[in-house]
């Protein structure tokens, strides 16, 4: 190749559209299974703590609020979250899910904390009439159950 053999390529690109998009005004679509920020469906959480145990960043914290009412509080520290979605994989009842937001910066790390306070979901062995959520729950084994068997 002679000197300036690169020039035709350069000239061709002069008349092409830019390869980038004007980001704040136009946004790229994220793919279908994008790993955004984890969130909880509190109505299906059986408090087995699999997510808390497996989280590599120790970003999930579950505390008991009221033992008699079986009320629990889950806190996701999104400032520590590494967005690996291991909590979604570990959850036996599909209570954890990832959203597709990617603009998640905040001025303070405390603004990134998310909390859910809820009554532990009861998994009925038989798919009968669904029990009301606030009803005192029968002792539930923390063993993983298949998502198809889970009920609120």
């Amino acid at each position: 190749m002679r000197i300036a053999g690169f020039v035709p390529e350069l000239l061709r690109h002069l008349f092409k559209k830019p390869a980038t998009v004007d980001y704040p005004f136009r946004k790229l679509e994220v793919p279908k299974d994008f790993r955004g920020t984890p969130f909880l469906h509190p109505e299906t959480c059986i408090v087995c703590r699999a997510c808390e145990r497996d989280c590599p960043a120790e970003a999930i914290e579950i505390v008991e609020v009221n033992a008699a009412e079986k009320r629990f509080k889950m806190t996701i520290h999104n400032d520590r979250c590494v967005h690996c979605a291991q909590c979604v994989d570990s959850c036996p009842t599909d209570a954890m899910e990832m959203d597709d937001k990617f603009e998640i910066s905040a001025f303070s790390r405390w603004d990134l904390k998310e909390e859910w306070e809820y009554v532990r979901a009861v998994v009925k062995p038989k798919p009968a009439a669904p029990a009301p959520q606030a009803a005192p729950a029968a002792p539930v084994s923390p063993s993983p159950v298949k998502p198809s068997e889970s009920e609120t």
Binding site: D33, F34, R35, C84, A85, M98
Partner: peptide, 10 residues
């Protein structure tokens, strides 16, 4: 598209 993230595929 395969993994859900650009850098840390996990």
């Amino acid at each position: 598209m395969i993994s859900g993230n650009r850098v840390h595929y996990a």
